[in-house]
Every structure is written in structure tokens, then in C-alpha cells.
Design a binder for these strands. Structure first.
Length: 271
DNA sequence: CCATATACCTGGCAGC
DNA sequence: TGCTGCCAGGTATATG
């Protein structure tokens, strides 16, 4: 479910409200992708100093250590003063003196991992290989072009790999490539500099716009205050196979790339 | 080192 | 209805 925009919208929806909260109890449900890394009750008494985002991970800075949260494919967070009784897909309830942070994740590809610091081996195993943040001003066109030159695979798959630029998942990769007029199968290394520049701008634009729109609620995404997003309503290609291109009316096509579905317009996007 | 396939898990839906 | 097979927003890990 969640790509950078959904994770960022989630972060903004509870970061201020949970700041400086003290953990009163921590209940974990069914196993997630990885174990927490210490007994849940040992986090009782910790204070939450800030909520940051790195790629699609949320980082809860504690007064001792850090919690890495990932929403996987189907995860969402809800932060409220009172929570209804936990259901079968609620796998974390973090009770604080400001409210309860609940992780709901039917498929359990998500994770909650404790690490002593962001630089610890535990955290770096998950974060160490990540590329640059696209919305932080550190996303440089020249560096982007240089990095793409070294990659032989299709540009769509390079974007998804997240080791050059983070946060672009299956929806926004298709959307950004449409916006840039680039066929998803083009080898990354063969993109001309002007096309790389268009792609760079498209990535920034589509992600920023999606954050503005509250993310994409294709199925069930909601922010930590329970709001759905609206970006899916303006998707140009994602999920629109067979429907007319909004620019040229050619039917949108879908194809498989690395076991993931890609959507594109065969007319607007050039090989 | 690089590129691609696999595994994890559950629910929803199309088709029979 | 109820069954089966396929699909889904991610990514570490294995394999070539």
C-alpha cells in the first residue's frame, strides 16, 4: 500500500500529537516481518522525541534508542486517545500518555524493529543501502544521471530498487515515467540527459502532488487520523489498463516487469 | 559487484 | 453458494 507519499502523510498525521509522549505499555500481536529485537515491556517508560521518515520507513526517536516502523504492503497506523478492542490484524498497540498508536496490517509484511541508534548495525542493515530523499532538496539531477548510467536494467525496475532515489513504489514509478514520456522498459543507462532531467522533475512533482492529495487510497489506505487520500483519482496510468490515455486517448497498456505490473501509454511514452 | 527470482501473508475478486 | 486461482501499494534474501 504505502509508498513515500502515504508514509509521509501518515507521519504528518500523528507526529505532533505523539511528540514527547511517554510509552505506558506495548502490546505486540502476531509476528511481523522481523522480531522487535527486545521484550516489548522494556520500552515502557521511554519517551518519543520525534517521528521522522527515511524512504518508506518511519523512525521514532526515543530517549533511548530508535524504533523503525514499516507498513509493508497493507499496513496503516492509527493514533487516537481511545482505541476500540484490537482486531485480528492489529499487531501493535503502543499505549502512551497522549494516546494509543496502533499498527493494522493484514498481510504482516510490515515491521516494528528496535535499534540502539540510527547508525547501529541493526538499523543500517535496513537503511544503509537506501538512495537519496527525493523531496529533501538533496536530489541532484547530475548525480541522478550519473547513477543511472551505471544501471543496465529497465528504468522502472531501477526506480523501484530504491538504491538511487527512495520512496518511488509501483504506483508512482508508472506515474512518473508517464509524466516524463519515457517507456518503462528503456534501459536506465541509455536515457539521454534531457530525458533524465524530465524524469527527475516528474518524480519530484508526482510525489509532492500525492503528498498534497493525502496519498493514494486504492484499497484501504488511511492516515493515522483516519483520513483517506485522493491521488488515485488523478492517476494517469496506474490501474487504468484499457482505459483511454488522458492526453492522447490511446488505450493504456499493462505489462509485467520483474513480477510487478507496469502501466504505460504506448503513444505518449517513447522507447 | 550486478540482475533477476523468490519468499513472506492475507483478503478480495473473477470465473466456474 | 462455494471452490480455485490470481492479484495486490514492499523488500530482504537467495541464486545465477
Amino acid at each position: 500500500m504505502p509508498e513515500l507519499p502515504e508514509v509521509e502523510v501518515t507521519r504528518r498525521s500523528f507526529a505532533d500529537r505523539i511528540q514527547s509522549a511517554r510509552i505506558v505499555a506495548l502490546h505486540m500481536g502476531k509476528p511481523l516481518r522481523w522480531p522487535l529485537g527486545l521484550p516489548p515491556q522494556s520500552l515502557v517508560g521511554r519517551r518519543i522525541e520525534a517521528v521522522r521518515r527515511r524512504g518508506k520507513y518511519l523512525l521514532l526517536d526515543l530517549d533511548e534508542g530508535i524504533l523503525l516502523l514499516h507498513l509493508g504492503m497493507s499496513g496503516s497506523l492509527n493514533f487516537a486517545v481511545h482505541q476500540p478492542p484490537a482486531g485480528p490484524h492489529d499487531h501493535m498497540d503502543m499505549e502512551t500518555d497522549r494516546g494509543v498508536l496502533r499498527l493494522h496490517d493484514p498481510r504482516r509484511f510490515g515491521a516494528v524493529v528496535w535499534a540502539p541508534s540510527e547508525n547501529s548495525a541493526t538499523a543500517q542493515k535496513l537503511l544503509g543501502h537506501l538512495g537519496v530523499e527525493p523531496l529533501d532538496g538533496g536530489f541532484d539531477v547530475n548525480a541522478f544521471a550519473l547513477a543511472l548510467k551505471k544501471r543496465a536494467s529497465a528504468i522502472k525496475q531501477v526506480l523501484l530498487s530504491g538504491d538511487i532515489v527512495v520512496g518511488v513504489g509501483n504506483i508512482y514509478a508508472s506515474e512518473a515515467l508517464f509524466m516524463a514520456g519515457i517507456r518503462p522498459t528503456v534501459k536506465a543507462s541509455r536515457l539521454s540527459k534531457p530525458r533524465v532531467a524530465r524524469l527527475h522533475a516528474a518524480i519530484v512533482q508526482v510525489l509532492a502532488r500525492a503528498v498534497q492529495q493525502g496519498g493514494s487510497s486504492l484499497k484501504d489506505f488511511v492516515s493515522a487520523e483516519g483520513k483517506t487520500g485522493y491521488f488515485q483519482l488523478e492517476a494517469a496510468v496506474y490501474g487504468r489498463a484499457g482505459a483511454p490515455c488522458r492526453v492522447c486517448s490511446t488505450p493504456i497498456r499493462s505489462m509485467l516487469q520483474g513480477q510487478r505490473t507496469t502501466f504505460y501509454c504506448p503513444t505518449c511514452q517513447k522507447p
